[in-house]
Write a protein that binds this DNA or RNA. Structure first.
Length: 490
RNA sequence: CGGGAUGUAGCGCAGCCCGGUAGCGCGCUUCGUUCGGGACGAAGAGGCCGCAGGUUCAAAUCCUGUCAUCCCGACCA
């Protein structure tokens, strides 16, 4: 087997290459850390969008769109918010270019300086709450349940493809409520929606929890999160849902008259997931043969590869293949018939494996004769010869099986890599091995900070429910009431 | 912004120490033979050696500067 490993730097970069390329326009730092999403990668994102969007709508949300540019002054209205984002904002200062008088190409026209600079949104709380002020007067205007699909820019010091790019695609939900209780319920509901999506569509198991104050969103009262474990033992924050209290309502003066005719500040939530989820997908399931996509999100669920030596055989095989394709499509399965005559079957097998297509059907002259097909599954790489009777039902079942197998595999991996420790010594050893480490924590930021400094591990989340278990902080020895989950993370 | 490494064909790299006008693998093009797991042979196409300056008869190679990328830190809903 002449497997070409020479064009492969490492697995991740090769897997990524099927989906994205790094933006390589950089003559300076302007496009640093941006990515070009290729059609196949974008198709996966669209699958995710569609599934999520449906879930948002089922929970009563609607979509809207707000501006990309945010006046600088908006940011300073909420103190902790500005502090959290100030260091990573792209700022628009001018609105016009001109020809360089010295003939050195195009330069910024200094006369076109903006009175007030515009910030390219790193997140939209400020501009949305500035808008909400005008939309909300009465309790009858509430709740306001809005989601936005958008791109945002965060000028990170260090970028990483998918996981931390300077520009990324995401959705951000921003809701306004009459009561604290209702807003909290909303934040918790959206966390459940995220967990549902990531587990049932992406086949990636997640823990649900709340963030420690250190890791909390800038401007939030409480941050709920889902955390996944990647195959290399690092944790990844896959989605967050924030209870914002009345912080933004106060900052943007959003009040409403309640039923008792009293003026009150509105309660808020925001929640988001991003193209980072594609990173989570890749890093959870992929293997040495390339990507492995869960059937529910795979742009192509089944690929049919014909095998033939001459035109006559091709015609016979094609007839069969197209028949099967039609059958599968009636079942609602996304099928591609790869009838390219420019590539050989072996090449196609490898190519589709690399792209992570869950099921491959190969049909050759032998199969035409026997009314059979060869069915290969991507997750286990097993091959089987099946009779074409009820093939669409068999394939449909197989897709479901692959979906649940991927989840189970990932869940087993996470369970095998989640440990409970009760001493500092154990903690340090276990963190080195990767995975989640459950330990008692005294609840102080100082301890969390020290643990981070000494082990690079952070508190990924504090479990929401779960019985109280009295113990002693693994670092300080002070009393603790709950195990919290530590890990090294992306 | 600190420490380290790198920048040569679409991709992955060698060449640099010791200066003499650029090479390998994959991919690409054509023809032939192949086609049930990345085919083989033959013939081809493709390079401001990141950018700018310096040293030299001569620079991918030496020197200076600069830009960018990657890794480790710092930073990071």
């Amino acid at each position: 087997m002449a497997k070409d490993l020479t064009t492969r730097k490492d697995n991740y970069s090769q897997w990524y290459n099927e989906l994205v390329t790094k933006a390589d326009l950089a003559e300076n730092s302007a496009v640093r850390g941006c990515m070009v999403i290729k059609p196949y990668g974008y198709a996966i994102w669209e699958s995710m969008q569609n599934a999520l969007d449906k879930m948002f709508k089922e929970t009563g949300h609607v979509n809207a769109y707000f501006p990309l540019f945010i006046p600088k002054s908006f940011f300073s209205r909420e103190a902790s918010h500005v502090e959290g984002f100030a260091k990573e904002c792209a700022v628009v200062t001018h609105y016009r270019l001109k020809n360089d008088p010295e003939g050195k190409g195009i330069v910024v026209d200094e006369n076109a300086k903006l009175e007030e600079e515009l910030i390219v949104r790193p997140t939209s709380e400020t501009i949305i709450w500035d808008t909400y002020r005008n939309w909300i007067q009465s309790y009858r205007d509430l709740p306001l349940l809005i989601n936005q699909w958008a791109n945002v820019v965060r000028w990170e010091m260090r970028t990483r493809l998918f996981l931390r790019t300077a520009e990324f695609l995401w959705q951000e939900g921003h809701t306004a409520h009459a009561t604290q209780q209702e807003a909290l319920a909303e934040a918790e509901q959206m966390l459940r929606v995220y967990a549902d999506f990531v587990e049932n569509w992406m086949a990636v198991p997640v823990f649900r929890g709340i963030k420690s104050p250190n890791e909390r969103f800038a401007g939030a009262v409480e941050t709920f999160c889902i955390e996944a474990l990647m195959q290399d033992g690092k944790a990844l924050q896959a989605g967050t849902s924030h209870f914002l209290g009345q912080n933004f309502a106060k900052a943007f003066d959003v009040k409403f008259l309640n039923k008792e005719n009293k003026l009150e500040y509105v309660w808020a939530t925001s929640w988001g997931v991003s193209t980072r989820l594609m990173g989570a997908l890749i890093m959870s399931h992929s293997d040495d043969e390339g990507l492995v996509l869960p059937p529910k999100l795979a742009p192509i669920q089944v690929v049919i590869v014909p095998i033939y030596k001459n035109q006559e055989q091709f015609d016979a095989v094609s007839e069969k293949a197209l028949e099967i394709k039609k059958q599968l499509q009636i079942k609602g399965i996304r099928v591609k018939y790869d009838d390219r005559d420019t590539q050989k079957p072996g090449f196609k097998f490898n190519e589709w494996e690399f792209k992570g297509v869950p099921v491959r059907i190969a049909i050759g002259p032998r199969d035409v004769e026997n009314d059979t097909v060869e069915v290969a599954r991507r997750d286990t790489l097993e091959k089987d010869v099946l009779h074409i009777n009820d093939l669409s039902v068999k394939i449909d079942n197989l897709l479901e099986k692959i979906q649940s197998n991927l989840f189970q595999k990932a869940l087993d991996f996470r369970n095998e890599n989640t440990y409970k420790v009760d001493s500092w010594d154990e903690f340090q050893k276990q963190i080195e091995k990767g995975g989640f480490v459950m330990a008692h924590w005294d609840g102080t930021s100082e301890t969390e900070q020290k643990i981070k400094e000494e082990t690079k591990a952070t508190i990924r989340f504090i479990p929401i429910e779960g019985e109280k278990e009295h113990g002693r902080c693994v670092y300080s020895g002070k009393p603790s009431e709950k195990y919290v989950y530590f890990a090294r993370s992306y």
